[in-house]
Amino acid sequence: MDLGTQHQVAREAAARLPVLEAGLALLAGGAVGARLVLYSAPLPGAPGETPSEATALVEIPLATGIGAVDPETHQLRLDTPLEAPITGADPATGTAAAWARILDGNGDWWADCTVSATGDGGEVQLDSPMLYRGAYARVTAAVFQG
C-alpha cells in the first residue's frame, strides 16, 4: 500500500506518544535497573556498539518511575536531578563527558545521547561536563524528543 503524504504524516503523529510510552516502560522495567553512563570521547563508530576507546566516567542508576511522557511537547523527560560519584575521570585535570549511553532495565542498549552543560541543548545536561574523580556528577535535565 502506498500512503498519501497527509495520511503518512497523520500516522506518524499518532504513533509519537505510544512510542515514547514504550521507551519509558523499557527504562522502568527489567531485572537490573536502568542506568545512564557518561563517557569521554569518542562515540563508538556504530550505534549501540561497545565503546572501546571511550572511558566510562560515571554510572548513574535510574530508579523505577524515573520520568514521564509530556503529551503536549512529545517528550520523554527523566526526573532530575540525578547524581552519582564519578569513578573514571582524572582526579587532577578532570575528563570531559562527551556523550551518554542509557541502558534499559535489563541492561540492554536503549540510546546514545548528546551531553552538554545546563542550558546548552544536550539531551542530557550536567552542572558541568568537566568531571573529576571523587566528585559527584549531577544531571540537571534529560529530555528526549519523540
Score class of each variant (00 low, 15 high):
residue 77 R to V: 10
residue 109 W to V: 09
residue 87 T to R: 12
residue 7 H to M: 14
residue 122 G to C: 07
residue 118 T to S: 10
residue 41 A to S: 04
residue 65 G to T: 08
residue 134 G to A: 09
residue 83 E to R: 13
residue 69 V to Q: 02
residue 112 D to K: 12
residue 17 L to R: 08
residue 27 L to N: 04
residue 107 G to F: 05
residue 17 L to H: 01
residue 86 I to C: 07
residue 119 G to L: 07
residue 100 A to H: 03
residue 38 L to W: 00
residue 83 E to D: 14
residue 77 R to C: 04
residue 78 L to R: 01
residue 129 P to N: 05
residue 84 A to R: 03
residue 43 L to F: 11
residue 120 D to T: 08
residue 17 L to T: 12
residue 114 T to C: 05
residue 86 I to T: 08
residue 49 E to L: 09
residue 80 T to K: 04
residue 1 M to C: 07
residue 71 P to D: 10
residue 134 G to I: 10
residue 20 L to H: 01
residue 8 Q to V: 02
residue 94 G to K: 03
residue 143 V to Q: 13
residue 102 I to Q: 00
residue 43 L to Q: 13
residue 13 A to S: 15
residue 17 L to A: 09
residue 94 G to M: 05
residue 21 E to W: 12
residue 95 T to S: 07
residue 49 E to S: 10
residue 12 E to N: 08
residue 138 R to D: 06
residue 91 P to C: 08
residue 52 S to Q: 14
residue 23 G to Y: 05
residue 54 A to C: 07
residue 38 L to E: 03
residue 110 W to K: 02
residue 32 V to F: 03
residue 99 W to D: 10
residue 72 E to D: 09
residue 92 A to K: 01
residue 50 T to F: 01
residue 125 Q to V: 00
residue 86 I to V: 15
residue 126 L to W: 12
residue 93 T to W: 10
residue 4 G to F: 02
residue 99 W to R: 11
residue 65 G to K: 07
residue 33 G to Y: 00
residue 34 A to L: 01
residue 24 L to Q: 00
residue 75 Q to A: 02
residue 27 L to M: 04
residue 6 Q to H: 06
residue 40 S to N: 01
residue 109 W to Y: 15
residue 26 L to Y: 03
residue 125 Q to F: 04
residue 137 A to C: 05
residue 116 S to L: 06
residue 144 F to Q: 10
residue 118 T to N: 04
residue 139 V to I: 05
residue 14 A to D: 15
residue 146 G to Q: 02
residue 32 V to D: 05
residue 43 L to R: 14
residue 65 G to S: 09
residue 89 A to R: 10
residue 20 L to C: 14
residue 143 V to H: 09
residue 62 L to I: 14
residue 85 P to N: 09
residue 109 W to M: 12
residue 63 A to L: 01
residue 27 L to W: 07
residue 3 L to K: 14
residue 111 A to S: 15
residue 127 D to W: 05
residue 61 P to A: 11
residue 52 S to K: 14
residue 146 G to E: 00
residue 115 V to S: 12
residue 61 P to L: 11
residue 145 Q to D: 14
residue 108 D to V: 13
